[in-house]
Simulated scan of single mutants.
Amino acid sequence: MSNQQPNNPLHGITLEQIVTRLEAYYGWDQLALHVNINCFKSDPSVKSSLKFLRKTPWARAEVENLFIRTFK
């Protein structure tokens, strides 16, 4: 059997890669405007963002959707 997921645009991309690419593309200020969460506004870092997004499914979904709209 194949482990490929042709209908999943995020297959093989880690959350860290998503946050890093979005930050490089938008910067923290613009990223906070697109996804209104404090970890992008107040003393942002990849580490703090990952910690929050892993615990908060709705915020993670918003970040993943922004990634798909931006890069796919």
Rank of each mutant, 00 (worst) to 15 (best):
K41R: 15
K47Q: 14
V35T: 06
I13R: 00
L53S: 08
V46M: 10
S45H: 06
Q17V: 00
L50A: 01
F67D: 00
A24S: 15
K51S: 13
F52A: 05
T56L: 09
R54S: 14
T20H: 11
E23N: 09
F67T: 03
A32S: 15
P6S: 11
L53W: 10
V63C: 08
K55L: 11
A24T: 04
N36R: 13
S48Y: 14
K51N: 13
N8W: 02
R69E: 13
L31V: 09
D43W: 07
L15I: 02
L33R: 14
K55D: 07
S45D: 03
E62H: 07
E64R: 14
I13H: 02
G12K: 06
F40H: 12
A61R: 15
V46S: 10
V46E: 13
S2R: 14
D29P: 00
F67S: 01
C39N: 05
Y25L: 03
F67V: 05
P44T: 09
V46H: 13
W58C: 12
V19I: 15
E64Y: 04
L66A: 03
L33C: 09
P44I: 07
G12H: 06
Q17R: 01
E62P: 01
Y25I: 02
T70G: 03
Q30V: 06
G12I: 09
H11T: 02
M1C: 09
K41H: 05
A59Q: 12
P44H: 13
K41G: 03
L53H: 09
R21T: 06
H11I: 04
N8I: 05
N3F: 06
N8M: 05
Q30A: 14
K51G: 02
E23R: 13
P44W: 11
Y25C: 05
Q17S: 07
P6E: 13
W28I: 00
Q5N: 10
S49P: 06
P6K: 05
Y25M: 04
E64M: 08
L15S: 01
W58D: 12
L50W: 03
R54H: 13
A61L: 15
V35E: 04
N65I: 01
S45R: 04
L33Q: 15
L66Y: 05
Q4V: 06
L22H: 06
G12Q: 02
L53G: 10
H34W: 04
G12E: 01
